[in-house]
Amino acid sequence: MAGLESALAHLGSIEALAARATPVHRLDPRAKLLTTGAFLATVVSFGPRQVIPLLPLALYPVALGALGDVPARPVLARLALASPFVLLVAIWNPLLDRAPALAIGGLVVSGGWLSFASILLRFCLTLGAALVLVAVTGFDATCAALGRLGAPRILVEQLLLLHRYLFVLVDEAARLLRAHALRAPEARRPGLRVAGSMLGQLLLRTLARAQRIHRAMLCRGFDGVLRRRGALRLRAVDLAFTGGWCAFFALARAVDLPRLLGGLALGAGR
């Protein structure tokens, strides 16, 4: 319960961030969505043991977040919350794959640890980018972009309505749980039968609400399509944003930038 409530608080903070007006917020949501897609594809296209070549890609979420005034702490906190399963799977790699793959001075690093680090890094990059994307775009605009990029209309409408009523229904569930806790102070959580009734009640209310919403839609001329105002318009700056970043991703994929940089630095030092 606390988990979902904190998740809702997180959703609220994401919304507050999305309401800001930085140049990144003003970019066309399609440009941001496509660029993020290209970013994700680039990240996962690296080999399973590559760690260092992935590092330059961190520039994308970092720069996007910085330009969009997204504070780092909530994003990192969200990543930490989502990490247990990834850790659970990744931790087997160092246990099982213990052949040396890399030597740093006297320290030998096994392939397992490399792939472990690689998985964690990918996890941070991909999910960090997704979180930053929504924080600088907003959920609604992201959905609008999905629709314009060809997602089925029904799915886009579904996303919008789900997001709208998430808060209403979670409040309702919280009230139910509070009422249960007040009248059954001994039970830490409801048993199966009680939970079935509670969920059933919640479901009945949900269905009644669906009917009222449908009536409200009909009363205002709903004919099966949820229409929204405002057309998206791609500007030169959107194209430059997408083009520029994609070029950077391609460069980072083709050239091992850190090694190049390190070589230059060490060479200059000599």
Partner: peptide, 25 residues
């Protein structure tokens, strides 16, 4: 035909989230 499906699906999606709050033994 729609017959309230748009509203129903939307609210049931939210219901799934809300239902995940009800942890039972």
């Amino acid at each position: 035909p729609d017959e309230g499906r748009v509203a129903l699906m939307g609210v049931l999606g939210a219901f799934v989230f809300a239902a995940q709050m009800v942890n039972f033994a």
